[in-house]
Design a protein around this nucleic acid. Structure first.
Length: 409
DNA sequence: GTTGGTTTTCCGACCACACGGATAT
DNA sequence: CGATATCCGTGTGGTCGGAAAACCA
């Protein structure tokens, strides 16, 4: 596993894609993730150079090696090597060029295959899910931000390995500890711990059953259904919280993405509302984490409600995703969702009904594309002869031949 | 508004067999 | 300990049939 590219099986794998759970060489990474807009959004990071199977999240400056959390812990948890300087490794999406990769990972200049990487035509499509604050955004590269900040990762980072506690990175602490104020209101919006460091959640079984890719989190549906936080928050209060939302009959089991999406959003609104009066200290915030919605959505509250942070579940979700979601963004911005009731409730109700209608239509038209895991098997199945749709033994009579559409009987 | 019959939609099961992972040698 | 052989579970698509939903009188 690992080391050799999962796609071509030839080149040495360099990056890890969480969405595909695949180790890829740079060439295949570029090819695979330039296929379409969705694949471009896959969050990738360097592959751990020690175990060659997990995404790296730090670069040991002393040893010049990229390590996943586990290997970092094994290598730096004890002995004198624990004092090694380590540099956070950024995730990226899109199709970065060699220059862009070099800009975010200065150390990759040591790796010839990256120097050789070319994808100039895709310049500007890369986005970096940064481990630390952005320090510059080259105009020609849009949403690329760069940081080579070297940090000493505190022992605290390792303490949650194998536990179900919520990861708390140093950067998180840095953000959350900042004083409240207008200048900081935007920080939670940009902050997404799981995105910044996939490895932080990698060992956390808490998230094993939740995969953003699988549920295809559709933020557009959020806005359709939850465009008005007020009406929903009121409904949640009236109906006793998120359970009523989970029981919505409109949400068929097959449409798990919408269900999960709504669950996530509903949880965010509902929980914030329901717990807001008591959510003024760390203890109350922690209590949120113990609710049954924990696997779906995590909150990391530290100080006041304005510091409530939205924590993504997997590295796949990016800050940009949340920026797309008006309601969530509002929460992230620290604005109280329980703002004064609007006198135009009837109008909002009508709008909401329209939104639900649009959602239903959209849902009806929606088709889940089957994902083929093994192209070779598909190729074989495509040419196999059948009888009434069933495969038949080679040489037996058949009534359908995909190749010639002829019949033997 | 309710009921019963008809039509439409949805979804799981079925088939053979190459492939890949696990295990044994 | 690595290489090879063997075993066994998995996945693939078109069609069918039953269940559920939708529709209509």
């Amino acid at each position: 596993m690992g080391y050799i590219c999962d796609f071509c099986g030839d080149q040495r794998s360099m990056v890890y894609c969480r969405s595909d759970a695949a180790c890829l060489c740079l060439s295949c990474d570029r090819n695979v993730h330039s296929a379409n807009a969705l694949s471009r959004r896959h969050s990738r990071t360097l592959l751990c150079e020690r175990c060659n199977s997990q995404p790296a999240f730090v670069r040991c400056v002393e040893e010049k090696i990229s390590l996943c959390q586990n290997c970092d812990w094994l290598g730096h948890g004890v002995s004198t090597s624990s004092t090694h300087k380590r540099q956070g490794i950024s995730c990226y999406s899109g199709c970065p060029s060699a220059a862009e990769l070099s800009s975010i990972w200065s150390f990759v200049l040591d790796i010839p295959s990256i120097r050789e990487s070319t994808c100039e035509q895709e310049l500007g499509l890369m986005s970096i899910n940064e481990n630390s604050e952005s320090v510059g955004v080259p105009p020609e590269n849009g949403n690329v931000s760069v940081s080579d900040q070297v940090t000493d990762l505190p022992a605290l980072d390792r303490s949650f390995v194998g536990t179900s506690s919520i990861p708390e990175s140093s950067s998180e602490t840095r953000i959350l500890d900042q004083p409240d104020g207008p200048a900081n209101e935007c920080l939670p919006k940009l902050y997404c711990p799981a995105t910044k460091c996939p490895a932080l959640c990698e060992d956390d079984n808490l998230y094993d059953d939740f995969d953003m890719d699988e549920v295809d989190l559709n933020l557009e549906n959020y806005e359709e259904l939850f465009g008005m936080a007020l009406s929903h928050s009121e409904e949640l209060f009236e109906n006793g919280g998120i359970d009523s939302l989970f029981g919505t009959k409109d949400m068929s089991a097959g449409d798990s993405s919408c269900q999960d999406a709504i669950a996530a959003e509903g949880s965010s609104v509902g929980l914030v509302n329901a717990t807001q009066p008591a959510c003024s200290n760390a203890a109350s915030a922690d209590s949120i984490l113990s609710t049954k919605t924990e696997p779906i959505l995590c909150f990391t509250g530290r100080q006041a409600q304005s510091n409530l942070s939205f924590s993504g579940i997997t590295g796949e979700s990016s800050a940009a995703d949340y920026q797309d979601c008006g309601t969530t963004s509002m929460l992230l911005m620290g604005e109280p969702p329980w703002f004064a009731p609007c006198p135009e409730n009837s109008l909002q109700s009508a709008n909401r009904s329209n939104a639900v209608l649009r959602y239903k239509e959209k849902k009806k038209a929606r088709k889940f594309e089957k994902q083929v895991r093994y192209a070779s098997r598909k190729a074989r199945a495509d040419i196999r002869r059948r009888v009434k749709g069933r495969f038949v033994k080679a040489g037996d009579v058949y009534d359908y031949d995909p190749l010639s559409t002829t019949r033997s009987c």
